[in-house]
Design a protein around this nucleic acid. Structure first.
Lengths: 341, 341
DNA sequence: CAAAAAAATACAATCGATTGGATTTTGCTG
DNA sequence: CAGCAAAATCCAATCGATTGTATTTTTTTG
């Protein structure tokens, strides 16, 4: 960057060789003698040479970078997904560029442009709650830049998706709550244009139906599942004449704040009077008392699978248009917030 | 990237202009007519032109990117610091490249090289627990790439640091525990070659001294402050003949797991028999029962301040060698884990 | 040992955007 | 409308690495 930075030309001058030979030597090309490679490597190390990725990327048209868009890096699920992505990516020689949308459509668009401008070779994305238009992602398709979605994916896009079976997981949570004796089960849901919230809602609905329980629309609380929404949801449910015997929240954050609110502001016992379950198995769920029943979805496994898939697509080893869905196992974790001995 | 991608040359051909004019038009140079700028902008939008940052960066020797190294993006403090950094950076026209060291020296070195290879214009770093050698960071100094540290900084480096007053905060925590009646106060500490753990330890020590309490070395538990360490620390303290009346942990994670362990595996009441305090005000601390007394250090404010400082240094508006220390206010948050009515 | 084959290295163009200097075009003045 | 200054645009080199082709050097062989 600064004038002092060493380039292959400096090494070439230093060894009275041509820069092309230096380049090939450092890239371990068979066109350069082992002996020369040794000399070059030594000189490079001595001079403190470091490749300029912008120059290499410009020439090769390959940035060796994959872009990641997530709603929030601070959410445990996403930060562990990123860890999984990084593991695979670094191993395969890719760098990772991380962006967060804060669940906001406009920011997601800005992120997508930033990734494009950096000419990332592939994109891993989990879309924002506010995203209902997908032109900004379609662009990657148009340019044949592979895109793999994880957890949250847009409807009707021909891309691989790495997910858990949200329908089944939600079914099992609801079934568990029913088996613990709850007849009236409330549900905190996110926007249902998003696959995860739609599937969790449908799983909840199906379990109720299978156990001959009516779905009471008044017990479905639509929100963005933030901490405040959990409180509002709890307030709302407690205000009902006939408040429910259980809450299944589509994420942990809202479940936790609802539980906290109920503990502080009502005489209802948990799980005795009201059982609670969340979704994602974030760290707090095992720290609080009682522990929160939830669904463990391994962010790390999902991230790894998504990154592997993306990299095979980048390498052209598989058809990018394949609309495959990779389903990672999830697990119901039953804890004190719902388990009545 | 792919052959289809539009370049300024395509726009130039399309408008029968030279690519240099396109470049200047898009960069709003005074050397191009307003009318031409309009035509160029319109054509660029129509053709879906997006600049190639690698090409621009190579030519200008400016990547418009700042690098960030943190131990863990999943820790609330760091993810909020990153949010603060992003806010300032995007506003000032910089992109952000995030790396995590996982508190491991080797990974930190790899991260530093990756940032260098991408020719970031500045670095924001919070060093790993295992880092005791600093050559990998010194390199940025050598190349005159500004570096600003936040929270954790290396000893004796001439760089600006953005921190809270850890000594004072720890002093206030300890003083609070003393005022609540604890005479024997244990401390969970991280490696004290790191400023934050050293300062927190010293603040603890000073408060004890000021209140005429002896520092019992057997009550200082040295560890990495992970969840497991909290459990081990609690086990250790409970095994003592004369177990302490309070624990001040240098982070929340260890405090939370210790508290949880004590609640589950002893008959001691919190805060009655043993008071507990942590550090950082991570989200879990306000969700659990009792709430954990802690110190609020606004990651976002620290991130913002660090990014602002870094960008002024990048712009050359201030001497990079200035060893200024920017201190962001912190706040003692007293909750049920220590407050005895 | 000369000539051909093979190996090692050098040359030069290229990626896309930027930028100092040269050239062309426009606008004004007398 | 010639002459000239100012404005607008074009030309060409450049950033650092890569890579196809050309050239030089080394090795092999008859």
């Amino acid at each position: 960057m600064k004038k002092g930075t060493v380039t292959i030309h400096d090494i070439a001058r230093h060894l009275s060789l041509d820069s092309s030979t230096i380049s090939r030597a450092l890239n371990d090309s068979p066109r350069v003698t082992v002996k020369t490679k040794e000399r070059v490597r030594k000189a490079a190390a001595e001079l403190g040479y470091r490749p300029n990725l912008m120059a290499a990327g410009l020439r090769t048209q390959r940035s060796k970078t994959i872009g990641v868009i997530v709603p929030w890096i601070s959410r445990h699920f996403f930060s562990s997904a990123i860890s999984g992505i990084e593991q695979v990516a670094y191993q395969e020689g890719f760098r990772v560029m991380i962006c967060q949308s804060h669940d906001d459509y406009d920011r997601e668009v800005v992120n997508a442009f930033a990734l494009f401008d950096n000419r990332v070779e592939g994109v891993l994305a989990s879309i924002a709650m506010d995203t209902t238009s997908f032109d900004h992602l379609q662009r990657f398709k148009d340019e044949h830049t592979p895109t793999v979605f994880f957890d949250r994916y847009p409807p009707g896009i021909e891309s691989c998706q790495v997910v858990i079976d949200d329908f089944d997981a939600a079914y099992r949570v609801t079934e568990h709550l029913i088996q613990q004796g709850s007849k009236r089960i409330a549900h905190f849901s996110g926007p249902r244009h998003l696959n995860i919230y739609r599937d969790r809602y449908e799983g909840y609905k199906k379990a109720l139906a299978d156990y001959d329980l009516a779905l009471d629309p008044a017990l479905v609380f639509d929100c963005r599942l933030l901490a405040d929404d959990g409180i509002k949801g709890a307030q709302y449910l407690l205000s009902l004449d006939n408040s429910p015997g259980a809450i299944f929240s589509a994420n942990d954050l809202a479940a936790l704040s609802a539980m906290r609110y109920i503990q502080k502001n009502s005489r209802l016992s948990i799980p005795g009077d009201i059982a609670i379950a969340g979704f994602s198995n974030s760290p707090s769920t095992s720290i609080i008392e009682p522990g929160l029943t939830t669904v463990d979805q391994s962010g790390e496994e999902i991230g790894k699978a998504a990154a592997k898939q993306l990299i095979t697509e980048i390498r052209g080893e598989v058809d990018t248009l394949a609309q495959e869905q990779i389903v990672i196992p999830s697990k119901l974790i039953i804890r004190g917030s719902s388990y009545k001995q």
